[in-house]
């Protein structure tokens, strides 16, 4: 519930990595919440996209990576098209996925063996190719 801020915390590694991978300047975000307002899957998210950006900016790595927000993002770019400050929030969500997937533990977000019966035959390859790119390390 409480955080201590120092300039190292503000210029933390986590935020820098996310900014590098996504190519976005998180300081430009003035927390207007337009992205959360327009996100079609926000209803299922523990915290909204604008809060994820805020948490990242403040260097709260565990809390940011602990939520399902960036795993639920379907890269539909509705947020990016409406951001008044021109931040590409979809890229930030992708960057967060990359941060987790590129970690040493190489932990995948989905386990293929756990797919239900007949799932592989039913679902088109597009879903697998894009899904595996987004969820497998």
């Amino acid at each position: 519930m409480k955080i201590e801020l120092t300039r190292q915390k503000v210029h933390n590694e986590f935020a820098k990595k996310v900014e590098l991978i996504s190519g976005q300047n998180l300081f430009a975000c003035y927390q207007c919440g337009n992205c959360t307002a327009g996100c079609p899957v926000a209803f299922a998210m523990e915290i909204g996209p604008h809060e994820v950006i805020r948490y990242t900016l403040l260097g709260l790595e565990e809390e940011t990576l602990g939520v399902n927000t960036y795993w639920l993002c379907a890269s539909c770019l509705q947020c990016t098209s409406r951001c008044p400050k021109g931040i590409d929030i979809a890229r930030v969500m992708d960057a967060l996925r990359m941060v987790v997937l590129r970690k040493k533990e190489r932990k995948d977000h989905i386990q293929i063996p756990e797919f239900p019966e007949g799932f592989l035959e039913k679902v088109p390859q597009i879903a697998f190719v894009s899904g595996f790119r987004k969820f497998l390390s």
Partner: peptide, 20 residues
């Protein structure tokens, strides 16, 4: 007509895609 169908979430979180 311009909202997202859930796309590859049908692989990641199928019930969210169903909602969409």
């Amino acid at each position: 007509k311009i909202e997202c169908c859930g796309s590859f979430q049908s692989v990641g979180s199928p019930d969210v895609a169903t909602e969409c």
